[in-house]
Measured scan of single mutants.
Amino acid sequence: TLATPAVRRLAMENNIKLSEVVGSGKDGRILKEDILNYLEKQTG
């Protein structure tokens, strides 16, 4: 899974598996926005 260290840390802090997040960046890269959108969906 393609993600920057900052995105990986954000995911780890929120107990998110990067494999569950759909990346919207180039080549499927997971962006910070993708993590935040995933969190919004989870908290509903």
Rank of each mutant, 00 (worst) to 15 (best):
I16G: 01
G25T: 02
M12L: 10
L10M: 14
S19P: 07
N14P: 00
N37F: 05
G28I: 00
L31K: 06
G28C: 02
A6G: 11
V22T: 15
G23R: 01
G25M: 01
L10V: 07
P5V: 13
K41Y: 09
K26V: 09
A6C: 08
Q42A: 14
N37R: 14
R29C: 12
K41R: 15
L31Q: 10
L2T: 11
L31V: 10
M12A: 14
R29E: 15
T4Q: 03
N37D: 13
G23Q: 02
E33A: 12
L39Q: 11
K32T: 07
L36T: 12
V21T: 01
L18W: 03
R8E: 13
V22E: 14
Q42G: 15
L18V: 05
G28E: 03
A3Y: 09
R29W: 10
P5I: 09
T43Q: 14
G23H: 00
S19L: 04
R8A: 13
K32Y: 10
G25E: 02
E20N: 13
R8F: 06
G25V: 01
R9W: 06
L39S: 13
I16M: 04
L2Q: 04
E40C: 12
S24P: 01
L10P: 03
A6R: 09
A3C: 08
E33P: 08
K26Y: 07
G23Y: 00
E20K: 08
Q42V: 11
R9L: 11
V22N: 11
G23D: 01
V22I: 12
L18P: 04
S19V: 08
L31M: 09
T4G: 04
P5L: 10
V21D: 03
G23T: 03
L10W: 03
E20G: 04
L10C: 04
V21C: 06
I30C: 02
R9A: 12
V7I: 09
R8P: 00
V21P: 03
L39A: 15
I35Q: 06
N15S: 05
D27Q: 08
L39H: 09
S24F: 00
G28P: 01
G25A: 04
S24C: 04
G44C: 11
K32N: 07
A6K: 05
V22H: 15
E33L: 08
D27V: 01
T1P: 04
V22Y: 09
T4F: 04
I30L: 05
K26Q: 11
S19G: 11
V7A: 15
T1N: 13
T43S: 13
G44H: 14
G28S: 04
R29K: 13
I35H: 04
E40D: 14
I30K: 01
V22K: 15
E33D: 10
K26F: 04
V7E: 04
I35K: 06
L18M: 07
N37S: 13
V22W: 05
L39F: 07
V21E: 03
N15R: 08
I30S: 01
L10S: 03
R8G: 05
I16H: 02
L18T: 03
I35G: 05
K26S: 10
T43V: 13
R8S: 11
N14Q: 08
I30N: 01
V21N: 01
S24T: 13
R9M: 11
G44N: 04
T4D: 14
V7D: 04
G44K: 15
Y38M: 14
E40L: 09
R8W: 06
G44W: 05
N14S: 15
S24Y: 15
K26E: 15
E40Q: 12
L39R: 14
L39M: 15
L18H: 05
L18F: 15
R29S: 11
Y38L: 13
D27N: 08
G28V: 00
L39V: 14
L31N: 10
N37P: 08
Q42T: 14
R29Q: 15
T43H: 11
T4W: 01
N15K: 14
Y38H: 11
S24E: 03
R9V: 07
L31P: 02
I16D: 01
K41P: 10
K17G: 06
L2Y: 09
L39G: 11
R8C: 08
Y38E: 13
E40A: 14
L39E: 09
